[in-house]
Every structure is written in C-alpha cells, then in structure tokens.
C-alpha cells in the first residue's frame, strides 16, 4: 500500500500569540514550532501502522521553507519512508492543496492522509480542495479506519454523532483524535531519519483568490468578578440580571 501524509508545522500549543508589521505577520520571536498534532499523532501514525500491517510505503509531504525540515525529519523518525518538501511559504490553503495535488497526480497513492485541521489557522480547508483536485472521495474527521485490500471501512465524526462508511479504491482522509495512538520516535528511528530521502521541489504558480487584510488580538477581559462560596445566589443573580445568560 502506498500512502501520502500531509504534514504541517504549527506554533507549539502553549505559544503566546502576537503579530508584527501592523497585524500582517505572525510574530515568530520566542515561538517554538511543532508538527501539527493531528498530522503527527493520528494521520502519520495510522499510515505507519497500516504499512507495518500490510506492507508498502509512507511518504510525508510538506509545503514550506527549509525551516520545516526539522518537522519533516521527525515524521521520518516516526516511520515515514521518504519525504517531499515543496519549497514555498504557503499563503493559503488553496496554494497548499494545489501543490500537493500536483505531486499526487503523478503517483497512485492508495490513501492520502491529512490532519483534521491545523491548530494555527483551524481552517480544515486543505483536504476537501485536494480531494477535488484529484477527483477522489474525501472523508473529514475520521477516527477509525480499517483497510482490507482495496476496501476501506471508516468511521467519521459528524455533528452530534458518528457514521460508518465503506469506500472502495483510493481516497483522502482527514484524521481526528483516536484514529491512532501518539508515538514517540525512538533512538533508532531518529538515527534512520537522517539517512532517509527528503526531496525538495519548487512550487507551481497559483492565482490567489483570498488575501489576508489583518490580524487582531481579542480585547482583554475586564477581569473576573469573584463571588463568595457561601453566596451562590449572588452568582445566579449576576448570570440572570447582568450577563443575561440564564
């Protein structure tokens, strides 16, 4: 089985967020970056598990500049066989989908995995666009996947429930929690990752339809109103009369 896993780089989950250039750009000062948790813990690990079970290869792909190589090496350490980096700072999800589609078109991947969303832009946009460009079925928020030959049985989270679906042939899957269990790369994996191939390719041109105007930070909270534990009635009064939420 031949799989492709799309990985992205995001600020560490504890990062304090700020912007420079009058709100245009993210301030990377003092920020440490990680592999997007959904890509690493669920998408990549499930692809590696399937390879271990039925054989085949796992390729990791990223659209980004050379500073992403650390994250890509981690994907190789966790178990991807090789990696491709499209050498460009992606201005949009459309750009990312176009670049990945361009590469995937030439290969016959059985499965293409993504994370359910990146935790920086929380868009969940790349997967559906990529699937459309490749004319493949797409399943969002998959938390369970079994493969038997060409048939995939998967479960996906829907609003207030879950669906089980059977699909035959290649498809694109966005991974949600529980699709796999997080793996920590071991020493051998880390050593091997240094020798695995990482191919860098140049991007194709893309016409952008969406542009960023600015970023804003939320207004600071006015501070908490503390109510004495013996005076719970007062909290209820405030919620009813002041906040008007109950």
């Amino acid at each position: 089985m031949k799989t492709l896993v799309c990985i992205s780089k995001t600020p560490d989950t504890t990062s304090k967020i700020s912007f420079v250039d009058s709100g245009k750009n993210f301030n990377t000062d003092g920020i440490s970056f990680i592999m997007n948790p959904y890509d690493e813990w669920y998408a990549l690990v499930r692809a590696v598990e399937l390879k271990e079970k039925v054989g085949g290869t796992v390729t990791a792909i990223n659209v980004g500049d050379a500073s992403n190589d650390l994250v890509i090496r981690k994907a190789l350490a966790i178990g991807a066989d090789d990696a491709i980096r499209v050498n460009a700072n992606a201005p949009s999800s459309y750009f990312v989908a176009k670049q990945i589609a361009e590469i995937a078109k030439k290969e016959n991947y059985d499965l293409i995995f993504l994370g359910k969303e990146t935790i920086d832009y929380n868009g969940a946009e790349v997967g559906a666009q990529l699937a459309e460009l490749l004319d493949l079925p797409f399943f969002s928020f998959v938390n369970h996947l079994e493969v038997e030959g060409k048939t995939n049985i998967l479960k996906r989270e829907i609003e207030g429930g879950e669906e089980t679906i059977k699909v035959t042939g290649p498809c694109v899957i966005s991974a949600a929690k529980d699709l796999a269990q997080q793996r920590i790369p071991n020493m051998q994996g880390i050593m091997m990752s240094k020798r695995k191939p990482l191919t860098v390719v140049e991007p194709i041109a893309v016409e952008e339809l969406v542009s960023l105007i600015t970023h804003d930070l939320p207004a600071p909270k006015k501070g908490v109103t503390l109510v004495n534990a013996d005076n719970v009635d007062e909290l209820v009064r405030l919620l009813h009369e002041e906040a008007k939420v109950i």
Binding site: P11, L209, V210, L212, I213, T214, H215, L217
Partner: peptide, 14 residues
C-alpha cells in the same frame, strides 16, 4: 485563528 487566541480578516476577490 490560533485556536481563538486571535482573529483574522480576509478579502475574497473572486
């Protein structure tokens, strides 16, 4: 964006 820690404004021109 950034899990609710900030917001972003975009222009769609298509």
């Amino acid at each position: 964006v950034y899990s609710g820690k900030a917001s972003a404004t975009y222009a769609i021109s298509s």
